[in-house]
Structure formats: C-alpha cells, structure tokens
Simulated assay, not measured.
Amino acid sequence: MRITQGCFSFLPDLTDEQISAQVEYCLSKGWAIGIEYTDDPHPRNTYWEMWGNPMFDLKDAKGVMLELADCRKAHGDSYIRFNAFDSTRGFETVTMSFIVNRPKVEPRIRMVRQEVDGRSQRYSFETVR
C-alpha cells in the first residue's frame, strides 16, 4: 500500500533532481524548508520528528539536499518529508509538504468498523505490518 500524504503523493517517487527543483521553487518564494521523519505514517500522526531546525536563511537547494542525505543515512527506512513554511502573514504556515523518502516495505492501514448501540457504527484505523 502506498501512503498518499502531501503534494505529489500520487505520482511516482521524485528523483533527487526533481526534489532539488521543488526546493529551488520554495526558496525562490522565500519559504523556509523543514525536514521531518517517522516510522508511523498513520493519517492522524501529524507530528513527525524534526530533523534539525527549519532552514530559514538558505538561498540554495544544496544545503537542503545535504541535510536530506544526512537524514537518509540516519533514518533511511523511514518516511521523510519536506515542509515549506511561508511567514509572510507574520506566522509560519505550512504551504507545501511532500514525501521524499519511503521505507522499502510500506505498512498497510486497515479501516475497522464496529457496530455499537443500536445501528450506530464506529470506525478506527489499524496499521498492519
């Protein structure tokens, strides 16, 4: 099962050249880039682990790509995503987010339906490894 979260998630995985081009676009807009990683891509898990601090003052994608390479070395079998932050409104807003690394085997997420009082239904999600 392919996890589909963020921009480009329905496309084939981006190459490093394509990732770099997206980073250049973000930097040209003045957006800061943050790198996050997780082993749990559950849709309700919105708080991934940060890899360092967001990169606010970069003007070149090479710095971001070096950080990505280091993150891949440490967490190569995890999900890694880039977040682009726009601060033009006076606070940081995630403007763009996309996955740049996936584990070799992605977990499956299964929806479980449970019948409760009367005809009511309760739904939950389980990660199946």
Rank of each mutant, 00 (worst) to 15 (best):
T88R: 14
E67I: 00
T95Y: 14
K73Y: 02
F98W: 09
F91E: 14
K73D: 07
A69R: 03
E67R: 11
L66R: 09
A69K: 11
G76C: 01
I99N: 08
R72F: 02
S87A: 12
V100N: 13
R72Y: 03
I80V: 13
N83H: 12
F82I: 05
L66G: 00
S87N: 13
T93G: 08
H75P: 01
F91H: 15
H75W: 12
D70C: 06
H75R: 08
I80F: 03
R89F: 11
K104I: 15
F85Y: 15
Y79R: 00
M96D: 09
Y79T: 03
S78N: 11
K73P: 00
H75F: 11
K73L: 07
T95R: 15
F82Y: 08
F91Y: 15
R89E: 11
L68F: 08
R102I: 13
F82R: 03
G90T: 12
R89N: 10
T93R: 14
K104P: 06
P103S: 08
V105P: 08
G90N: 11
E106V: 08
M96C: 07
M65D: 04
H75E: 03
K73Q: 10
G90R: 08
D86P: 07
K104Y: 12
V105L: 15
C71F: 05
D77V: 00
F85D: 01
S97K: 09
H75G: 00
Y79K: 01
T88C: 07
P103V: 08
S78D: 12
L66N: 10
V105W: 13
L68H: 06
R102W: 10
E67S: 11
R89M: 13
I99L: 13
E92L: 02
S78I: 00
P103H: 02
T95G: 13
R102V: 12
E106S: 09
D70A: 09
D86N: 15
F91Q: 14
G90M: 09
L66K: 11
D86L: 04
M65S: 00
F91N: 12
S78C: 15
R72G: 01
C71R: 03
I80P: 10
I99T: 13
N101S: 10
F85P: 09
T88Y: 08
P103L: 05
T88S: 13
V94D: 06
T88D: 11
M65R: 01
T88N: 13
V94Q: 06
R72M: 04
N83K: 11
A69H: 05
H75T: 00
Y79W: 10
C71G: 01
K73I: 02
P103M: 08
F98G: 08
I80K: 05
F91S: 12
R102Q: 14
R102S: 10
V100Y: 14
A84F: 04
R72K: 14
T95A: 15
D70Y: 06
N83T: 10
D86G: 06
G76D: 05
A84I: 04
E67C: 06
T88G: 09
D86W: 10
R102T: 14
E106C: 10
A74T: 03
K104M: 14
T95F: 13
T93M: 15
L68D: 06
V94I: 15
R102P: 12
F85G: 01
E92R: 05
K104V: 15
L68S: 05
Y79A: 02
I80S: 07
L66H: 06
D70W: 06
E92D: 12
